[in-house]
Simulated scan of single mutants.
Amino acid sequence: MSVSPMAYETQFFGFTPQTCMLRIYLAFQDYLLEMMAVVESVVLKKLDASPGGRVSRLDVRKSTEKFLRFMKDHFDQLFGKMEEVLLQLVLSIPPNVLLPEDKVHQQYPYSEEQFQALQDEISRLREQCRAEAAAGQALRAELEEQKAVQAELERILQWFDGLENTCREHGTSNFRESFAFLTQNSKKLQDVLKDVKEKSKKIKRGDE
């Protein structure tokens, strides 16, 4: 059997030419063994049908094996020639022939150094894309946070607007006076609440 790798042929056919030839060889060998078994069975039947025969079954088996070796030796010689013809003329691709998927290499030839530089550039661009994606994600998170802060500021501004309107309704337009007014009212409310709690406790004690 041939020992040439024939990698290009394997790429084209999808299997190694040597494997194909081995399968053909084994198929012929199996067929030869089957035929010899059939011949032997016919000879044995003829032997059983002829009374007084001097040939034993063991002699038939020895003759069959001897003939099988003879046929196998000649078959191996013929198959060697057939294999050489098939591998060179049928299952081989000429050196000047390019497969369709490899024609791009002919149009755009690259040296090993250029190919490695291209691979390095691809890796660098891939890392850059990852970094930009991470930066974009961080920017989106920051924008969401800014939106939340802006909403809180707007809520505070609305609260101040409401406070200013309340102060105007009570005749106070100065901001400090407004706070003083609110503080005074808040203290009054706290005193009233304290008084209510004390009276509530006295009422409960009286009920007891």
Results as ranks from 00 to 15, higher is better:
residue 147 K to H: 12
residue 190 Q to E: 01
residue 200 S to F: 04
residue 10 T to I: 01
residue 11 Q to P: 07
residue 96 N to K: 14
residue 9 E to N: 05
residue 80 G to L: 15
residue 173 S to Q: 11
residue 50 S to F: 10
residue 180 A to D: 03
residue 171 G to K: 04
residue 47 L to V: 02
residue 32 L to F: 10
residue 171 G to N: 06
residue 151 A to H: 04
residue 147 K to W: 07
residue 165 N to V: 06
residue 186 S to D: 01
residue 115 F to N: 11
residue 146 Q to E: 15
residue 43 V to K: 10
residue 18 Q to P: 03
residue 56 S to P: 05
residue 33 L to A: 10
residue 133 A to T: 15
residue 126 R to L: 12
residue 161 D to Y: 07
residue 147 K to Q: 12
residue 190 Q to F: 02
residue 101 E to L: 07
residue 46 K to C: 06
residue 76 D to P: 06
residue 160 F to A: 11
residue 5 P to D: 00
residue 81 K to N: 00
residue 144 E to C: 08
residue 199 K to V: 13
residue 81 K to G: 04
residue 9 E to T: 05
residue 56 S to H: 02
residue 201 K to N: 00
residue 165 N to G: 05
residue 124 R to G: 06
residue 35 M to P: 01
residue 26 L to N: 07
residue 78 L to H: 11
residue 173 S to A: 10
residue 157 L to Y: 02
residue 178 S to R: 10
residue 94 P to Q: 13
residue 18 Q to E: 03
residue 27 A to H: 04
residue 132 E to I: 10
residue 22 L to A: 03
residue 136 G to Q: 05
residue 206 G to E: 08
residue 54 R to G: 12
residue 12 F to G: 02
residue 101 E to P: 05
residue 130 R to H: 01
residue 201 K to A: 03
residue 49 A to S: 13
residue 100 P to S: 03
residue 62 K to W: 04
residue 80 G to C: 12
residue 50 S to N: 13
residue 103 K to C: 12
residue 196 V to T: 09
residue 68 L to K: 10
residue 174 N to E: 11
residue 163 L to W: 03
residue 49 A to D: 09
residue 7 A to Q: 10
residue 107 Q to E: 08
residue 137 Q to V: 15
residue 163 L to P: 04
residue 51 P to T: 03
residue 57 R to V: 05
residue 158 Q to A: 15
residue 149 V to D: 07
residue 45 K to V: 11
residue 72 K to C: 09
residue 84 E to P: 04
residue 100 P to F: 01
residue 122 I to V: 11
residue 23 R to F: 01
residue 126 R to F: 08
residue 58 L to N: 04
residue 67 F to L: 14
residue 111 S to G: 14
residue 3 V to Y: 06
residue 165 N to A: 13
residue 146 Q to N: 15
residue 122 I to M: 05
residue 25 Y to H: 07
residue 9 E to Y: 03
residue 185 N to Q: 14
residue 52 G to W: 03
residue 198 E to P: 00
residue 172 T to W: 00
residue 39 V to G: 09
residue 168 R to T: 09
